[in-house]
Design a protein around this nucleic acid. Structure first.
Length: 219
DNA sequence: GACCAGGCACATC
DNA sequence: GATGTGCATGGT
């Protein structure tokens, strides 16, 4: 815990928010859609995920019972645009199977489970890693679990911060910010926006809202 | 045609 | 614990 880090993270947030405004995440309407999107977007452009979700909506599959019934190969065909479709179809099935078997197919039952334990349960599902678990917790279940990703890592490294592994990166935020769902929601979404539009691989940082916090222009 | 995109599991060292 | 590989589509 350091007050300097807290101050820096606050400055980052304020600068991003001032430049980009509220991001209104997650871009999905229902908890089912958010969770499906969280799995489909693994290492995949969001535009491709939207095509896949449109197919699922068309087929009436943004629903746990329907997802539970459908055959995996058919599901794979529908989500083809999202890439890795065979793997992801099985991952969706794994999640639905867990929800139906352990929690009666009812997301509201998860509300009474302590956050740390619920996160461990999610991580036990094959195909749900740390980022997917935290996205589900934060955006679908509205629990204060900070989501970090490749963008977050790149942005912080460009600002001279060092860390190793998902947990260490996540701890930078969770140890220095108040544990609030609204803040965590907006913070991650803003980092993604900055990562997408400004902090790109091999790109320079001219127009980045965080530019004035760079110590070294060559970073 | 290469590179990138809101990861994860699994094998190997 | 770190590193390498397979999984696959669609945009730039």
């Amino acid at each position: 815990m350091s007050k300097a880090t807290t101050r820096t993270l606050r400055q980052f947030y304020d600068a991003m928010y001032k430049a980009l405004g509220p991001q209104k995440w997650w871009p999905g309407e229902s908890p089912v859609e958010i969770i499906v999107g969280a799995i489909l977007t693994q290492n995949t452009n969001w535009g491709n995920v939207e095509r896949a979700i449109a197919n699922l909506r068309e087929a009436g599959l943004l629903d746990w019972r329907a997802l539970h019934r459908i055959e995996t190969p058919r599901l794979a065909e529908l989500i083809r645009p999202a890439g890795y479709f065979n793997v992801k179809a099985q991952r969706l099935k794994n999640f639905v199977e867990w929800l139906c078997r352990r929690h009666d197919g009812d997301l509201s039952q998860l509300a009474k489970i302590e956050l740390g334990r619920l996160r461990e349960e999610l991580l036990s599902i094959n195909g749900v890693g740390p980022e997917t678990a935290d996205s589900i917790l934060l955006y679908a279940l509205e629990r204060p679990s900070f989501v970090v990703d490749a963008y977050t890592a790149r942005i912080l490294r460009r600002h001279g911060m060092t860390f190793s592994g998902y947990g260490a990166l996540q701890a930078i935020f969770e140890d220095h910010l108040p544990s609030e769902v609204g803040l965590f929601n907006e913070y991650h979404a803003l980092m993604v926006a900055v990562g997408k539009h400004f902090c790109r691989p091999k790109a320079r940082c001219e127009a980045c809202p965080l530019r004035r916090f760079m110590h070294d222009e060559t970073a």
